[in-house]
């Protein structure tokens, strides 16, 4: 699913973001990417999205070598990936529904399907009652759930999240993590960058540790606190 082969990323002679990193994530896996600030977590995510190209090494995502991906192929490639940011990146002048509809429009989803899909995905993150609210009217946790709903709207095979709980308190973080876990149970591979050790401990998934651009020790955590009952998210898949 995701393979890094001896990837090095230098921005200039003195600024090395990643140094000889090789990593692998299987299809359907949930992987944490952690390490201190400046360790190279965001660089890895940007490389996967092909916002950056490696200075050395090869990256293969879902069977595609990103070095050979043409500029014209990038949109189709990115449509298969759901991206979640620490600062949500919602469009504040648009309602929750419009934020989702906007993405569906640019993805070419027929307009007649927008409402149905938006409602379904918002119900999955338990925000279907806030369809017409504007982002500033929502709490941080709600905004992040909308952002996740937006990432999920196109049934991505891969979800990558950059510090998605960075602006949230522990309770809201748990809610958000629950949504990622459920998406993972539905089959999406999840790669989540965070430096929240408590979150990693509570979630209990494989961890890739980065420090100063180099790969540290990988630790497999025990799965913990998986959902015990099928949630609304599971029901969404049947729509």
């Amino acid at each position: 699913m995701i393979d890094f082969y001896h990837v090095t990323k230098r921005f200039d002679r003195y600024s090395v973001a990643l140094q000889d990193v090789s990593l692998h994530a299987d299809k359907g896996e949930f992987v944490f990417l952690t390490g201190p600030s400046g360790a190279g977590k965001s660089t890895i995510l940007k490389l996967i999205l092909r916002q950056l190209l490696p200075t050395e090494g090869q990256i293969v995502v879902n069977g595609r070598n990103l070095a050979t991906l043409k500029r014209s192929q990038l949109p189709m490639f990115r449509r298969e990936i759901g991206m979640v940011f620490q600062d949500f990146k919602l469009i504040e002048r648009m309602t929750v529904f419009e934020n989702l509809s906007f993405v569906m429009t640019v993805l070419g989803v027929p307009p007649r399907d927008h409402k149905k899909k938006a409602y379904a995905v918002l119900r999955a993150v338990n925000l279907h009652h806030r369809l017409n609210a504007y982002p500033p009217q929502l709490s941080g946790g709600e905004q992040q759930r909308v952002a996740i709903a937006r990432a999920l709207i196109n049934d991505p095979f891969l979800i990558i999240a950059d510090e998605p709980t960075g602006n949230l308190d522990p309770d809201l973080s748990a809610d958000v993590m629950q949504i990622f876990i459920e998406a993972n149970l539905r089959g999406s591979t999840v790669l989540l960058a965070t430096h929240d050790r408590e979150l990693i401990r509570r979630t209990g998934r494989r961890v890739i540790y980065l420090e100063k651009g180099r790969l540290g020790e990988e630790r497999a955590q025990q799965p913990a606190e998986l959902p015990e009952t099928p949630s609304t998210f599971m029901q969404w898949g049947s729509l």
Partner: peptide, 16 residues
């Protein structure tokens, strides 16, 4: 089950 959103969604050209 219908979503009660304010505006009618647009196709790409309508969006333009």
């Amino acid at each position: 089950m219908t979503a009660d959103s304010g505006e009618r969604p647009l196709g790409v050209f309508g969006y333009f």
